[in-house]
């Protein structure tokens, strides 16, 4: 057992799988010599050589486009986009090609590839360094999109992502990259993509969150429990394909539903989840399903960002409101 933070877990997992599978290739901007701007790939070039871990020109579409070609030609590229806000030039490659190659070739070419990117706010950064674009990827048929919230889940989900025969968008909650450590097994284990995790069972209300906000929700839940409110907390873990069954089953039990995410409210993961609840648990509901999300605004620069980032107090209030509806 190693005690790792999320960033260490990413590094450890890449190392683990590169050692196991010589076809795994890691690259991106500053990924080689420097080990990435967050140091997620530290030491990999030294250990595996410049053929298997290297720096690229500053061009996101080129990074993803070449990864598609590599995957077609027998390799397993795991590429890094430095910040999710910089992925936009690569969306043509991701949406127009990565997501479609299997279907376009009717199964002749599948793309075992992972696109990793740090996402989300709360790190007092410049513009384009704080976005949460999971709904953009979740909307695209042919992609799978995953978000871990702990070091343990990071390894399990990243191993699954690398071993997937289809492209996976792996969004890393950078706000909590170094926030806490956890025991992570050094051996092999994987967490299935497409399966949410019930972190804590409860009977009064179902709360769904993912990524960095899981931890704010947990703070709120602790206080709610002190007031005698029993919360069932679910970590979504996979954005797409979304785990309808776990959500519906839980809401059928609790009758109340709150979803929490940092991304903007409209056309979001919460929009999807509330639809799922309405489709699958409507007659069980004792209160309107609701949500705590980012406002429909551009993530503000650091001096205004504190209003955008969701804290446990807002989550606490919303859950209480739903329970006392």
């Amino acid at each position: 057992m190693a005690v790792l933070n999320i960033l260490n877990a990413v590094n450890h997992t890449l190392d683990y799988e590169m050692e196991k599978n010589k076809n795994v290739i890691v690259y991106g901007e500053d990924v080689g010599l420097e080990g990435g701007v967050f140091r997620a790939t530290t030491g990999l070039q030294k250990k595996y050589g410049r053929d298997r871990c290297f720096d690229t020109p500053l061009a996101e579409a080129g990074i993803v486009g070449t990864a598609i070609g590599m995957a077609i030609n027998g390799l397993v590229p795991v590429v890094e986009i430095q910040f999710s806000g910089f992925v936009l030039p690569a969306l043509n490659q991701i949406i127009a090609h990565a997501a479609r190659m299997r279907n376009r070739s009717r199964g002749k070419y599948n793309l075992p590839m992972v696109i990793r990117m740090p996402y989300g706010g709360g790190i007092r950064a410049l513009e384009h360094h704080s976005e949460s674009l999971e709904a953009v990827f979740g909307h695209i048929p042919g992609l799978k999109t995953v978000i871990p919230s702990t070091p343990y889940d990071t390894k399990g989900l990243l191993l699954s992502a690398i071993r997937e025969p289809d492209p996976v968008i792996f969004l890393e909650p950078k706000q909590i990259y170094r926030a806490f450590k956890q025991e992570v097994p050094e051996g092999d284990y994987s967490i299935p993509i497409g399966k949410a995790k019930v972190i804590k069972e409860g009977k009064d209300v179902t709360v769904v969150a993912y990524g960095a906000l899981i931890h704010e929700v947990q703070k709120a839940v602790k206080e709610l429990e002190n007031e005698g409110i029993s919360v069932e907390l679910i970590d979504l873990r996979t954005i797409s394909p979304i785990d309808r069954d776990t959500i519906i089953k839980s809401v059928q039990k609790t009758g109340r539903f709150v979803v929490v995410h940092e991304a903007v409210k409209s056309f979001s993961v919460s929009s999807e989840l509330i639809s799922i609840v309405n489709e699958g648990a409507f007659l069980y509901l004792e209160a309107p399903p609701t949500r705590v999300t980012g406002f429909d605004i551009i993530v503000p620069l650091p001096k205004g960002e504190n209003h955008f980032i969701i804290d446990s107090k807002r989550i606490f209030n919303k859950i209480k409101e739903v329970v006392s509806f």
Binding site: G62, G65, T66, A67, G69, I72, N73, N92, H97
Partner: peptide, 25 residues
Amino acid sequence: MLPISVPIASQLSHGVGIAMASNIK
């Protein structure tokens, strides 16, 4: 051979990636 690619010029980086893999392998 890859399938037809409709978005103009976006297929070229796939060719580059295939060729990068040829070098690596």
